[in-house]
Nucleic acid binder design. Structure first.
Lengths: 320, 320
DNA sequence: CTGAAAGCGCTTACAG
DNA sequence: CTGAAAGCGCTTACAG
């Protein structure tokens, strides 16, 4: 079928089946109260013509899109895959499709993409990111049901919110290290955003003499130079932990013998590097399902909820 | 603004500005031939009412969406990030937005999502995947300009196609190993799909006594057990290469001393694991830009093209 | 069970 | 430079 040809509409199907377009519409939508004979003729005609409903028209008139938009911080993050899968499963079983957008870890772009999803006309948005600012989230929540998965600086009252318990996760990591006999534990910052900061604050209140390093080209080498003063390090995420393990290898610092390492997120990386990373797992699939469930409930008028998911310690070789 | 309230339309703006809705439409679209006075009044009114154009209506009447759909094999693949960024940059500068969808590496789901993008009404589709079957691609190419990035079993004549030169990439990897003095080189399969098979076929014709292993729980251990019979391994992708390096570490096989390793794709993984992976790089950003450029050209009636991008060797520690 | 009418919110000619 | 009319392809009441 050449694209230049007239794409068949409901009217073409009606003519071919010898009925009105109202009846075609009803039959196509599977409405009850269409005679079997008519239905069969209509569906046959539609099939014959290779008819496809025009989504724009359908959405214009119905006022809903049956579409959920998911906004991701960026595409690289191994952490978010299961969250998206969870969202999609829950959405799909409720008859919604999911489209994705991402912001390359850039705040302005994230805001643009968030607006883009809303302007496109999705029925709800799930923002899997901690990078958005309060006013961006406010503006979005005013226009569409919004659920945030992650830990931005603040979440508007009108939005749903699902995150993991970073304080508890940090406590699990640090308790594990202490139980392995580590007293001098360092911390490596991920960023200054809330999730990372919460892990850091928990660290500060947990150890007697906090020793913190930045995750930059200077920070990790300094940490490794200090490997005789500290015996373990808690990194704010797996990416960092993997970087520490790699740099340690380059400098002949043995992990875990000279330095035990614990990460956060339990991404694919954690089981791929050597030694494998002890880390903190979040129930990501579940969080995604909950996010979609909440967005759909909000669509039906339910008030937004806040869910804090419990993290879990996953032990591998990097902590001895 | 509560969602329950009447969302302002072009007619509300017209009334507020004291003009016709045609003029509002013209002003909003930035058409020339609207007096400055009218334009100012209209834009002020739109702003005041927080007017947003209804995308469904706009698309229904204009017949185009200014939307490009990108289909990804799955979300995990570090390989595709730059491709998507390239697509987005090129699309955006032509006034198109990009939405993403993915198929979790499942053929049926990929087909469903491909249909979903088209049904949604995107103007063109870029399928960044080698997993789709000929008939799925055929059906899609009939309905919308389609550009494939990757190497599926076959690409319809009606579709554009961009891929890297796997044969050349494999040759670069193998020549590199040979130059480092390796004569007994093994190969580890990625899958049976065309890209991986092309790398394998090149391998077979390159070495005198091919020695192949599967990338499963049995294959890699057998390879490592044979490490005194082979001195190097070419893996069909970085993920596999990283797995080999990890398993080698577990079995005290030293990389590169006992076994040199070369991967393919130059993903983030390649510089994160230790030893860093020697690998083959594809010009991914460029490939993404080309894909978008081609899709947009096809929208203007240009015939589909086939582009084979040149890969490049990236040397790190894993090859000695 | 079926059809004719009205309308969703826009844009596109076409007058003036 | 501006406005009135027609129409995009559907769905939604409402008659019959």
């Amino acid at each position: 079928m050449p694209r230049s040809a007239h794409r068949p509409t409901i009217l073409d199907v009606a003519r071919a089946a010898g009925v009105s377009k109202s009846l075609v519409s009803a039959a196509l939508r599977g409405e009850r109260g269409v005679s079997t004979a008519s239905r069969d003729r209509i569906l046959a005609a539609a099939d014959e013509l290779d008819y496809r409903t025009n989504g724009w028209a359908q959405r214009l008139v119905s006022g809903r899109s049956d579409l959920i938009g998911v906004l991701l911080t960026d595409l690289r993050n191994a952490y978010q895959t299961e969250i998206v899968n969870g969202v999609e499963d829950a959405a799909r079983s409720a008859g919604f499709d999911v489209i994705l957008s991402h912001g390359r870890r850039d705040r302005d772009l994230l805001r643009t993409r968030l607006q883009g999803l809303i302007d496109l006309g999705v029925d709800a948005v799930i923002a899997v990111t901690g990078h958005l600012q309060a006013d961006d989230l406010d503006a979005a929540a005013e226009r569409v049901p919004l659920v945030v998965v992650g830990r931005p600086a603040s979440v508007p009252d009108a939005a749903g919110w699902i995150r993991n318990d970073d304080e508890e996760g940090a406590r699990l990591a640090l308790t594990h290290l202490r139980e392995r006999g580590h007293e001098r534990i360092a911390f490596v910052h991920g960023s200054s955003r809330p999730a990372s900061r919460a892990r850091r604050d928990t660290y500060r209140s947990f150890v007697a003499h906090p020793r913190e390093f930045d995750a930059d080209a200077e920070g990790i080498p300094r940490l490794l130079d200090a490997a005789d003063e500290v015996s373990a390090v808690f990194a704010a995420n797996d990416r960092l932990a993997a970087q520490i393990v790699a740099d340690a290898s380059d400098r002949r610092v043995r992990v875990p013998e000279d330095l035990a390492v614990v990460g956060y997120d339990n991404t694919e990386l954690a089981e791929l590097v050597r030694p494998g990373l002890t880390t903190i797992d979040q129930p990501r699939t579940r969080m995604g399902e909950d996010a979609a469930g909440q967005a759909l409930a909000m669509l039906d008028g339910a008030p937004p909820a806040r869910i804090v998911a419990a993290p879990r310690l996953v032990v591998r070789s990097s902590s001895g």
